[in-house]
Computed example of a mutant assay.
Amino acid sequence: MSCPSQYAVQSMSVRSSGAVGSLLSLVSSINLQNLPTYKPRTVKPTVAAPTNVTVPAPGEGVALYRVTTSNGDTCILLKTDALVEVKFKVHGVEETGDAYVPEKTIVDGNCQYSDSASMRISWSEYVLFWEFAKTPGGDTWYVSNIELTVGTSLPAYHTIRAHGSHFKLVHNNHKMLFPTPVGKSYSCDESVVHLEAKDKEAKDQGLSGSLLLRAFQLQPFMYKGADFSQSFECNAQLRFRDETAPLAVGSTLAIAVLMTVTGYGIYRYFKIKKVQYNTME
């Protein structure tokens, strides 16, 4: 029996390799039911962030408003992230309009007097007007008035009836706002100033408003520097009020007790004296 030639062996080996390769290819292409199918691992593509989405930096949104004198000295300084809110009624339903006070505004004011000053912040159809004063002793400054003027040409306020093209909201000017020792700045994490309408037509429409002040710091009557002086925090005022209220209540109670005891003593004195007089007779 003759042995296969070398050529025949090589040919058979090639055919066997081809058959094995075809068989493996056929098996790998079959997806049997109830058996896991493994996918090749791929790297998840990085998706670029939308260009219109930004992460705010710390302190972003807090604006600085400054009034300077004719020679360039800073006389009023205000730092805050502020929002004005207006409420009104349309056919008996309360509506709300609001606007952030932007960083870019028109700022002017008057600092020519030593015991009074003013600041005006204007943007769009809004004007926020501040007035400052000192107590008679001159040792404390405070905000004596805040006025918010809004134009009815803004879409949110088309339904508001007003004299002319604007309406005005003011705070209750019988209250001193933010009293602070002269030479210091007033600071508070959050403050709210309530505003109300003065004329009857505006009141009939339920007009009122609020000035929301976040990260708030304020100082008028500045002539010695361009930055805020030492801050007088609103929490200190709250503590002062908390300590003052019990003291006032205690003093009132002590006075009432003293008056009662004194009155009773006087009554007893005249009562006993009258009895003694009647006995002698």
Rank of each mutant, 00 (worst) to 15 (best):
V55A: 09
L78R: 05
M259E: 12
G263C: 08
V192L: 06
D189L: 07
V67G: 01
E85L: 11
S17W: 04
P50M: 03
K44E: 14
H163W: 02
T54F: 06
K200Y: 14
A202M: 04
A63K: 02
S251Y: 12
K203G: 02
N145T: 11
N31M: 10
D227C: 00
R41L: 09
Y269N: 00
D115V: 10
F132S: 02
M176G: 08
S70Q: 15
N173I: 04
C188P: 06
T69F: 00
R161C: 07
Y100A: 11
C75E: 01
V107E: 05
S17P: 01
R241W: 12
Y267H: 11
V127P: 01
G209V: 08
G263Q: 09
N31R: 14
R120K: 11
S28V: 06
G109Q: 09
S191H: 08
I106R: 10
P50D: 13
L238P: 04
L258M: 07
E125T: 14
S144R: 11
R161M: 12
V27N: 05
F216I: 01
M222G: 05
D81E: 11
M119I: 09
V43D: 14
P58A: 05
P102D: 04
R268L: 05
T105C: 08
S29N: 07
N110M: 00
M119A: 01
Q276H: 08
P36M: 04
A215P: 02
L77V: 12
K274I: 02
T74H: 02
A226T: 15
S116E: 14
S122H: 12
L128E: 04
S29Y: 03
N34G: 03
T252Q: 11
L24F: 14
T159E: 14
K274N: 12
P102H: 08
W130F: 15
K184D: 10
D108E: 10
L238T: 13
S165T: 14
I30Q: 07
S231D: 15
T244P: 03
S28W: 02
D115A: 05
L26C: 10
G263S: 10
L64S: 12
P58I: 07
F221V: 07
Y186A: 05
F132A: 00
F129Y: 13
K134N: 06
S124F: 03
M12F: 11
Y142S: 03
K273F: 00
P36V: 06
S2H: 10
Y65G: 03
F270A: 00
V192Q: 08
Q276S: 02
N173L: 00
S187T: 13
R120W: 03
L258A: 13
S122F: 10
C188Y: 03
V84S: 01
Q112G: 05
P50L: 05
S70E: 15
L213V: 05
S251A: 13
I30C: 05
S22L: 12
V275C: 00
P179W: 06
V27T: 15
F216G: 01
V20E: 13
G61D: 08
S11N: 13
H91K: 14
C234G: 06
V9H: 11
P56T: 05
V67E: 11
R239W: 06
E281R: 01
T42S: 13
D242V: 02
T262Q: 06
K274L: 01
S165R: 06
A248E: 14
H194I: 11
M176S: 14
Y269W: 05
D98M: 05
Y223R: 08
H174T: 15
D199H: 10
A226D: 15
A202T: 06
N52M: 02
K44A: 15
M176R: 15
V43Q: 15
V257G: 07
